[in-house]
């Protein structure tokens, strides 16, 4: 029997592999030892040079991600800021209204404006709709006010809702007086600008100061007296007449109000009867 021993050439791969594997294991074990540690430093340095250009790309990509994230955050924060501002403004308005209810002697019913038509083209159709009507004993002719002053008067009522004619309506009229001189006239709107109202029938002999407050007179028996309307901007004499037109900037901004009060004011029937009797007597 002949035994064939393998030649070294046949086992070459096994030997090489074994040596290489031993080297690999030696590397694993001796990685923290002196010589290899220096080699590690060199390799890490070389590796950092290779990585540097790519790290710029990574930094750029990261910056893009951060940018997107920050933009989202920015939008969210802007939205929150906007809501907080709105809430703050509303809070102030409600505080003013609360204060108004405390100080006012009038019988007030709080309402929210649910519809607003302030069309400058057709001024007679300017109106506000509020969320209170006949069910809440709201009646036609009752004034609507805010904490700042007069806003309009109720002209139509329905269950749950009422239509209010604001002062920016060419059909609106209210008896008013100058707070200092007590000279009275009629406040109306000529439909030309939303910045001012006109107080008419004030004699030219009456001195009108800019900034003077105009309030309801109460003489018409339609509105309670002393509800602020606005302040005087200027006065112009009417040509060929002995009266002047006083231009009044209203205290209430109809475009901004969202709520108000209906003053549960009803004309005094005794005064109305007396007026009627007087007219009958004169005729």
């Amino acid at each position: 029997m002949q035994i064939r021993l393998p030649r070294i050439a046949d086992a070459k791969d096994h030997i090489i592999t074994a040596i290489l594997l031993v080297i690999a294991v030696a590397l694993m074990i001796g990685r923290y030892q002196g010589g290899l540690n220096n080699l590690r430093k060199v390799s890490i340095t070389l590796f950092s040079y290779l990585e540097e250009p790519l790290s710029n790309v990574r930094v750029y990509r990261q910056a893009l991600k951060t940018n997107t994230y920050l933009r989202k955050q920015n939008i969210l924060l802007l939205d929150e800021l906007s809501r907080l501002r709105a809430a703050g403004q509303r809070n102030e308005e409600l505080r003013a209204m609360l204060q108004f209810t405390r100080t006012s002697d009038l019988s007030l019913y709080p309402v929210q404006i649910v519809g607003k038509e302030l069309n400058q083209v057709s001024q007679v159709s300017n109106s506000l709709t509020v969320d209170a009507g006949t069910e809440e004993n709201i009646k036609s002719g009752m004034p609507m006010v805010t904490a700042n002053g007069l806003a309009g008067k109720v002209i139509l009522t329905a269950p749950g809702y009422a239509q209010v004619m604001p002062f920016f309506n060419t059909l609106f009229r209210v008896s008013a007086k100058l707070e200092q001189s007590n000279a009275y006239g009629i406040v109306s709107w000529d439909g030309k600008t939303i910045k001012e109202l006109q107080l008419k029938y004030i004699p030219q002999t009456v001195q009108v100061d800019t900034g003077e407050v105009v309030v309801t007179s109460g003489y018409s028996n339609q509105f309670p007296p002393d509800i602020p309307i606005g302040k005087v901007i200027r006065a112009e004499p009417q040509e060929g007449k002995e009266t002047q037109i006083v231009y009044v900037k209203p205290f209430v901004n109809l475009y901004e109000i969202a709520e108000g009060f209906i003053v549960k004011f009803e004309p005094d029937t005794t005064i109305q009867n007396l007026k009627q009797n007087y007219e009958d007597l004169v005729e």
């Binding site: 791969d13 090489i16 592999t17 290489l20 594997l21 080297i23 690999a24 294991v25 030696a26 590397l27 694993m28 074990i29 990685r31 290899l36 080699l39 590690r40 390799s43 890490i44 070389l46 590796f47 290779l50």
Partner: peptide, 24 residues
């Protein structure tokens, strides 16, 4: 192939600080 594997494995380990793992 064995020598190429060992060489590349060594370099890969050197770059990634794995020392011997990839080589082996």
């Amino acid at each position: 192939a064995i020598l190429m594997a060992a060489g590349l494995g060594f370099l890969q380990d050197a770059m990634l600080d794995f020392w011997g793992l990839n080589m082996f």
